[in-house]
Design a protein around this nucleic acid. Structure first.
Lengths: 172, 172
DNA sequence: GGCGAATCTCACGTTGACGTAAACTGCGAG
DNA sequence: CTCGCAGTTTACGTCAACGTGAGATTCGCC
């Protein structure tokens, strides 16, 4: 990581497209190489390669020479991964479970899969639904706990302020 | 960890005191040895020793033979540490910063320190206040982000349900 | 087509937070 | 007194999630 980058909540800036030739013109959805992809997402290049290595993030494609290329989808996926990792506290193994299930579901939307066995498609959606519900449950619990904790801190701050006022009332 | 223990939100059960001899009688505030302390807090004995090793949790005292003894305060402190660790995502180094500052402030409450330099006491409280405010800020940000994420998941669940209903409408 | 910057693929190193095994000790029951 | 258990110190092992070169390739600009 060369530049820490506020790590805040700015959305991943879409790949360039300076004036008019965004994607609809070129057909190619504006790909980034690993260096810039790393900068935009705020992770290291090594991290992107590692994510690929363990199978949670594949580049959108490769250049003729073999350089990884990432599109908007992949950048957002990195954000998703980081969110699950830092915010929820999942490890990459658990994250793999989440994203692969989402991927399998994503293939459903592709037209050439519409012909598949309907009951199997139902099973896929159901599986994704159940996993999402489990994740939601987990997150909801965490929201409650962390909210409580925040309020405790607020109370603590109030008491500190009182003590401080008490001390100020009796100056040196 | 021998018994996983739901890891939920039950308060740390106070050390025994079977019938009437809680603490006011014996003078000693009901100490536990490391094995039971570990069980009650849901961490391993190694973890308790490790916390001591890195200076974030000292046992209340030792038995004649050198066994560590933990009281209610220490058990709660373990919970606090785990909360900061798992819920907020602080590492033990950061946690050390939090708890030691709280400790230094805690000595203020001890009567025999009332005589200290008032301006120094003010500085101590101020320091703890500022650190707590910084932590509160950090936690508040996290609350917002994780709440958003939870709501996103809820929306996702809704859409999955719709898709599923759509599939069910066209039975096999 | 040449050159410096960016990427590539191994492959070993690191760090935090413990796990785990070994050898020793204190102590209450039988 | 001995057995056995819970506890102690010391020290090496582990695992995830990358960090960090080394040496070979590729990119893109002059």
């Amino acid at each position: 990581m060369t530049k820490p980058a506020p790590a805040g909540r700015q959305a991943v800036p879409a790949p360039p497209g300076g004036h008019g030739e965004t994607a609809a013109e070129t057909g190619a959805p504006a790909r980034l190489r690993i260096g810039e992809a790393a900068q935009r997402t705020g992770v290291s290049e090594r991290t992107l390669r590692y994510y690929e290595e363990i199978g949670i993030l594949a580049p959108a494609g490769h250049s003729a020479g073999g350089c990884r290329e990432y599109g908007q989808l992949e950048l957002e996926r990195v954000q998703r991964i980081r969110e699950l990792q830092e915010l929820i506290g999942l490890n990459l193994e658990e994250i793999r479970g989440v994203v692969t299930r989402e991927d399998r579901l994503g293939t459903l939307r592709d037209a050439y899969h519409q012909s598949e066995d309907p009951s199997e498609r139902r099973a896929l959606v159901l599986e994704a639904l159940e996993m999402t519900e489990a994740l939601h449950e987990r997150v909801a619990t965490k929201v409650v706990r962390i909210t409580d904790f925040r309020d405790e801190l607020a109370g603590l701050i109030g008491r500190y302020r009182e003590v401080l006022d008490g001390l100020d009332a009796v100056p040196v």
